[in-house]
Amino acid sequence: MTSEIQLAGFGGQGILFAGKVLAYCGMLDGREVSWLPSYGPEMRGGTCNCSVTLSDEPIGSPTVYNPDILIVMNEPSFVKYINEVKPGGCAFVNTTLVDSVSDRKDIDIYNIPATAMAEENGLTGGANIVMIGMLIKKTGIISMDGIESTIRKMVPPKKAQLIENNMKAIRMGYDFE
């Protein structure tokens, strides 16, 4: 199975990091993974996107054009990418910063006010991880156990309190209905 994932938002929302979490988790699962960022001056404050592929076969093009799974964290990214999602795919939409709605019926759209939820719970900057929590619940492409060991590996020991914060954000997204 191959999952092509696109993440998009503003620079500073942790788009690249969220993508790295997914790729890292896939790698620990023993799968083939690739992570490809947008790069260049537009990274600072402008839009930012990232392609992640998880697969059981060698990965060809690392660029995701038509994602199976889309994570969008702001309005311009929603407008740009929502119609690129493969029929039968799904989109996770950060409704705190996305006002538009899509009338697509051939994909599952999951709305979550991730930025507001993160801020209300003292996890400012953690909206990206909240969205991953919801992705785990709805798609199952990675497991809760997998994500926990991923975060433990990715967070340096001297920043151990971040592990708990990240797991809290994951659970908030996972439990959101």
């Binding site: 083939e32 993974v33 690739s34 992570w35 490809l36 960022p37 790069y39 690392p62």
Partner: peptide, 9 residues
Amino acid sequence: GLLGQMMEP
């Protein structure tokens, strides 16, 4: 630039 910037295991 693609190979330089991308991450893989």
